[in-house]
């Protein structure tokens, strides 16, 4: 039986690593910024939950600061222009849904898709991160599970009325996640993160969230297949 290939040796100070990090770090910072803004916006759409949502938003802001520190620690300037472009489509979909008061779609984008994307990426990043970033990311990922749980619980409680909108929102937004993953695959690889591992972890987190909300395995398999359209 062949053995596992030796783990890639990473040089955190090399130009190749830092160049890739400038985009990945920016995506993470922008992702947390988006999350901060999205939860604040949701708090106005969901006044009953406003207090909790503002609390979640504050946590995302803290994460953003943490990841900014990770970039500074490696003397990397995050390429924020790239990151804003990266999130543009998902950002646009969230804004349109918010403008129409479509809470279910907003929650699917922020609490399920973005949170699961973050959980997958952070879990894959932790074992290959530099010591400073590892510590920060470990703290962040614990919070992200909590945020995912918020969305799950709300959608579970409103499953009967939310179901159709969730399916539609999934169909529109899941292909975006795949194309986002494809866009960063090369940079992520330079950081020791493999695309297929991120896809798998995303599908695990997303599938578990959909199952907790009330979808069956069959529904989840069908809904997940929309991601493949972008491959």
């Amino acid at each position: 039986m062949p053995q596992l290939e030796a783990t890639l040796e990473l040089d955190f100070q090399s130009d190749i690593y830092k160049d890739a990090y400038s985009r990945i770090n920016a995506i993470v910072i922008e992702g947390e910024e988006e999350a901060y803004a999205n939860y604040n916006q949701l708090s106005t759409l969901m006044p009953k939950d406003a207090e909790e949502l503002v609390k979640l938003a504050k946590m995302e802001f803290k994460h953003k600061k943490g990841f900014e520190a990770c970039g500074k620690n490696l003397n990397v300037s995050p390429d924020m222009g790239f990151a804003r472009e990266f999130f543009a489509a998902l950002h646009g979909n969230f804004q349109s849904a918010a403008a129409e008061g479509k809470i279910v779609t907003c929650l699917l984008i922020q609490s399920l898709i973005i949170e699961c994307f973050a959980i997958a990426a952070y879990n894959i990043y932790i074992p290959v991160a530099d010591a400073f970033a590892r510590k920060i990311t470990e703290g962040v990922v614990k919070d992200e599970y909590m945020h995912l749980n918020y969305g799950e619980e709300w959608l579970k409680a409103n499953f009967d009325t939310a179901r159709a909108e969730l399916e539609e929102a999934n169909k529109v937004n899941l292909p975006l996640v795949w194309s986002m993953l494809n866009q960063v695959a090369d940079d992520a690889k330079k950081l020791g993160m493999e695309r297929e591992a991120m896809v798998e972890d995303f599908m695990i987190a997303y599938g578990e969230a959909l199952a907790n909300i009330g979808f069956t395995t069959r529904d989840i398999m069908r809904m997940s297949s929309y991601g493949l359209a972008a491959v």
Binding site: E196, A197, M203, M221, S225, L228
Partner: peptide, 15 residues
């Protein structure tokens, strides 16, 4: 939907 997927797909598929 999955019956025509290649090995790459299965490498990223969840349990």
């Amino acid at each position: 939907e999955y019956s025509s997927m290649d090995l790459d797909f299965w490498c990223g598929a969840p349990p």
